[in-house]
């Protein structure tokens, strides 16, 4: 065996600024909340807007997180992601309506069970369709961004039309489960009950994804694959299977987000995924391609910004997220927590 060489290194204590830098994006959310407080001035309004902004952000996060992984790991620009949001909403709401006895019951656990079952059904259907979508539409265009944009947009249009064929062209209106209607008071602020559930679900998804990505071997492979696919294969991993698994998971998460988004709005249309797609892309770009943490922070910032600006200057609400994206990209051109480096 070889003896230790002479240049054995020693650990150097890192400076405070070096310790803070990785947490800067997280601090931005807090900064935005504080700025919102100063701008709004009325504590109860600020609290209501903040909590509803966080809930919106969680929904954006759930819808976007699959896309960021697909983007990051597979280098696939999937405009078809919006189709899974719409499909998830339709499947979820259909199941929820079928579970009328549970959703109309005045018992909270039965209502929550109905919501969870609807979400599970939406995820299962979107996962199965996602598998087919990857195999038939995405796989032939790996490596060609222009073709990916064209065929996945085509896939989105076809999927929307198929939804219209199966569920009809009309918007579907429905009511949320009985105990999730109305609002409740938290710290003096009025918050819709359903938003509290959405925040809990969003946090759970974030925690599960972080655990999978940080603590499991498959998570390691995905994180490494986002950085350098060739090297992961050279270590002995069949990345093609991981690609398929990530695409299926991304589609299922889009279905999850679509189901929750549909229940939140209490109306669903075949085009709702398409309409959400711009916000989803903004979240993914702000967060940094391939980063779940970046996506989480980006989604919260988009949700908060949208709510604050809609309250303070309604005319600028539509521009707020574009402005936020421009500002973030001027500060960090690769997004807040870039994982995928320029290839």
């Amino acid at each position: 065996m070889t003896a230790a060489p002479e240049h054995t290194p020693t650990m150097v204590r890192r400076s405070v600024s070096e310790l803070i830098v990785p947490f800067t994006p997280f601090c931005l959310v807090i900064f935005l909340i504080c700025a919102g407080y100063l701008a709004i001035g009325i504590p109860s309004s600020w609290m209501t807007l903040t909590l509803s902004g966080l809930a919106m952000g969680m929904m954006y996060f759930i819808m976007s997180t699959g896309l960021t992984l697909v983007f990051g790991l597979m280098d696939v620009i999937n405009f078809g992601h919006g189709a899974f949001v719409s499909l998830g909403a339709f499947v979820g709401v259909t199941v929820l309506l079928q579970l009328g006895a549970f959703s109309e019951s005045p018992v909270l656990w039965q209502n929550i069970a109905a919501v969870l079952l609807s979400i599970c059904a939406a995820m299962a259907v979107c996962a199965a369709v996602g598998w087919g979508f990857e195999r038939l539409i995405v796989r032939p265009v790996y490596g060609s961004h222009l073709n990916q944009i064209l065929v996945t947009m085509g896939g989105l249009i076809v999927a929307e039309q198929l939804i219209i064929v199966f569920w009809g062209p009309e918007e579907i209106y429905f009511s949320r489960p009985e105990m999730l209607k109305g609002s409740t008071e938290i710290l003096g602020a009025t918050v819709e009950k359903f938003r509290v559930l959405v925040v809990s679900l969003g946090l759970a998804i974030f925690a599960i994804m972080r655990w999978v990505l940080r603590r499991t071997k498959i998570g390691l492979i995905v994180r490494a694959g986002v950085e350098d696919r060739e090297m992961v294969m050279a270590l002995g991993y069949r990345l093609r299977l991981v690609f398929v698994a990530v695409f299926i998971a991304g589609s299922a998460l889009a279905g999850f987000g679509g189901a929750v988004w549909g229940m939140y709005q209490e109306v669903i249309t075949a085009h709702m995924g398409n309409q959400a797609l711009i916000l989803i892309f903004i979240v993914v770009i702000i967060g940094g391609l391939g980063s779940v943490e970046g996506c989480f922070i980006g989604a919260l910032m988009v949700g908060l910004m949208q709510n604050y600006v809609a309250f303070l200057a309604p005319k600028f609400a539509l521009l707020s997220n574009i402005g936020l994206m421009v500002a973030i990209l001027m500060w960090r051109p690769m997004g807040m927590i870039p994982v995928v480096k320029a290839k």
Partner: peptide
């Protein structure tokens, strides 16, 4: 043969650019 199978057959590869996963 696919790269992964070549590697699993017992070939270790160290590329010129090192291929270290910087975020890990």
């Amino acid at each position: 043969m696919p790269t992964a199978e070549i590697a699993r057959a017992g070939i270790g590869y160290v590329p010129e650019q090192m291929g270290v996963f910087a975020d890990l």
